[in-house]
Structure formats: C-alpha cells, structure tokens
C-alpha cells in the first residue's frame, strides 16, 4: 500500500482528485459516516507524489 486513507474524514471537496496528475484518485461508491461520497485511491497507479496529502484540508491521506 502506498497511501492510507481515513475516508470518514472526507468532506467531499475533491481537491485531491483535481490535483492528482496521474488520475489515481476517484470517487468511491458508497457514502462515509458523514454521508458524503469519499474518494478512493488506485494503489497501483499512485506514484506517491503527495499532492493529495498537500491539498486535503481534512487530513484524509497518509503517504506511507
């Protein structure tokens, strides 16, 4: 695993998706505890650039 997500923190701003240059982040299918659709990461595609961590206001991402 390259990046760990705490999806229940996600508020659905999707700044991570907009800033993931390789398109490894997308919306998940089911809502989280907050009732918003969180994001998911394609661990294969991820290059650990850290943009998702950098742009996330809600500390969802941990780059391992």
């Amino acid at each position: 695993m390259k990046v760990k997500l705490d999806v229940d923190r996600c508020k659905g701003c999707y700044l991570c998706i907009a800033n993931c240059k390789i398109g490894a982040i997308s919306k998940d299918d089911k809502p989280n505890k907050k009732g918003v659709i969180p994001v998911k990461v394609d661990q294969e595609k991820c290059v650990q650039c850290g943009n998702c961590y950098t742009m996330c206001p809600d500390l969802v991402f941990e780059i391992l």
Binding site: R9, K11, G12, C13, L15, V36, P57, D58, L59
Partner: peptide, 13 residues
C-alpha cells in the same frame, strides 16, 4: 482531531 471547517475550506489547509 478533525476540524470543523466546511468542505474545501482554506483555513484548514
């Protein structure tokens, strides 16, 4: 802990 800001807020960044 989790912050109380709106989605996409600049303060939390």
């Amino acid at each position: 802990c989790e912050n109380k800001f709106c989605a996409g807020c600049g303060h939390s960044l």
